[in-house]
Amino acid sequence: MKIDRRDFLKSLSAIGVSGIIGSSEKVFASEDLSGYPDRLGMLTDLILCNGCRLCEKACKEAHNLPPHKKPLEDESVFEKIRRPDDKFLTVVNRYTNTDNEEEPVYRKVQCNHCDEPSCVSACLVGALKKTPEGAVIYNEDVCIGCRYCMIACPFYIPAYEFDDPLSPAIKKCDFCYDVRIKKGGIPACAEICPVEAITFGKRSQLIEFATERIRKNPEKYIDHIYGEHEVGGTSWMYISGVPFEQLGFDMNLGIKPSPELTRGFLSAVPLVMIIGPALLAGIRAFTKNREQNSEKSEQKES
């Protein structure tokens, strides 16, 4: 999603016109929101993942985060479903497989890098940005710490450094944008994954690849690519052998991009800004006039 100031102003004028004609909400939808055609993405194959958590380790190393306290082999971390936080930009959770209880399913959680991210649309200082490469990145230098992006994210991803008094920042997976992607590299987790459960590539190719894999193994895979259409599409996608609901995926997100939710309201604001004062002044003039008239007539009567 690319909304800069010029586009915004352009759309404001569009709203002005359409507001008069009578359609308001779909103005923005007419703009091209298909994003960046060559954007990259990730595909996590949950059948392959075996929960070694090397991705967590690699991620921490790539982002200079404190290392794990317990060794990776310690399975006690799986007892609780974790979410990414300021020390873990990605976490792997274990879910019991109801079909085969001996073989649990592991799910890696991190920022899904939505094509039209709600966090980006929610940020009031534009600290979050979707890059042409597909990464949703964060600029600490302008963040004021309102944490509205955390409210907005449908996946509960952005985390905050609540313990940092003076320079707290949002922490979330950034696709290794600065440290790797810019230099033509591959994100740390995808590179280290021993079974290559995470495939990194162009999003369009990944969808083909995933579709092909599902088509070839219909008995193994659920026929759904999570993230292909969810909230308007995400750069990070999943395929799985067990129903996504069992793995804590929210299946009720719909396919409408989150920024659409506030677009209608935002488009009404400039209208009110312009028409409101005029209307108020008009009413005032009207009431004043009526008052004077009634005063005059009272005087006449008396």
Partner: peptide
């Protein structure tokens, strides 16, 4: 790993899988 060519698993992936 080469992200232009995602069809074939890399060496590490091929072994582990």
């Amino acid at each position: 790993l080469d992200y232009e060519n995602i069809e074939k698993p890399g060496l590490k992936g091929a072994f582990h899988r």
